[in-house]
């Protein structure tokens, strides 16, 4: 397996698109040793182990993407610390909610909270209103390609078989507007 430096990994994640997709799968393989180590430490069953390990990788990707990782420690150490916390969370929720159906709660990241605080919107009491699933697949896919996976408009044209970068851009614009309108509608209801 090829070896990448921390800097190369961070650059690939922040660049988005294909390079991000590849590096994510590389990380999944690279840190599999930690996976076995912590699963043994916390006596996680295979399902919880799989859940915790993939969750930790996703948390790391989001934190790098939002610039929360400041490079104060090696990336592997940072990941280990995230994974350790996720394992504790998984254990806690599996032991306390055995008979209760799990209701998914979507939480703000620290950067999102900071953004609210920065623009002066301080009363952040509610969880995120998750309305994007009410949108059609084509809109949702374009928004994810742009806003989460970090593909360029040119790449989105190829992935979604659109006619031009301009039409992709306009579609993204309309879909984002639609999503915001859904959020407002949900707020009123």
């Amino acid at each position: 397996m090829e070896n990448y430096t921390d800097q190369e990994i961070i650059q690939a994640i922040r660049k988005g698109g294909k390079s991000r997709e590849q590096i994510t799968h590389y990380l999944l393989k690279k840190w599999n040793g930690y996976n076995h180590k912590l699963a043994a430490k916390y006596h996680l069953n295979p399902a919880h182990q799989k859940d915790a390990y993939t969750d930790a990788i996703i948390k790391l990707i989001t934190q790098i993407d939002q610039g929360s990782f400041k490079g104060n420690s090696a990336l592997s150490t940072y990941f280990y610390s995230i994974f350790n916390n996720v394992c504790v969370d998984v254990l806690r929720s599996s032991s306390s909610n055995k008979n209760r159906p799990t209701e998914e709660v979507h939480e703000w990241t620290s950067v999102e909270k900071e953004a609210f605080n920065w623009i002066g919107q301080k009363d952040l009491l509610t969880n995120i209103k998750y309305v994007i699933q009410e949108m059609g697949a084509s809109c949702k896919n374009i928004l994810l390609d742009w806003g989460f996976n970090g593909y360029t408009m040119k790449e989105i044209v190829q992935r979604r078989q659109l006619s031009s970068a301009e039409s992709a851009r306009s579609m993204k614009y309309k879909c984002l507007k639609k999503l915001k309108a859904l959020l407002i509608k949900n707020d009123i209801v």
């Binding site: 609210f116 998750y130 699933q133 994810l144 989460f148 959020l183």
Partner: peptide, 16 residues
């Protein structure tokens, strides 16, 4: 802008 942050959070969660 608050609405924009929440829209971006929706995209993040769906992406995750």
């Amino acid at each position: 802008l608050s609405n924009h942050i929440e829209a971006r959070a929706n995209i993040r969660i769906a992406g995750e």
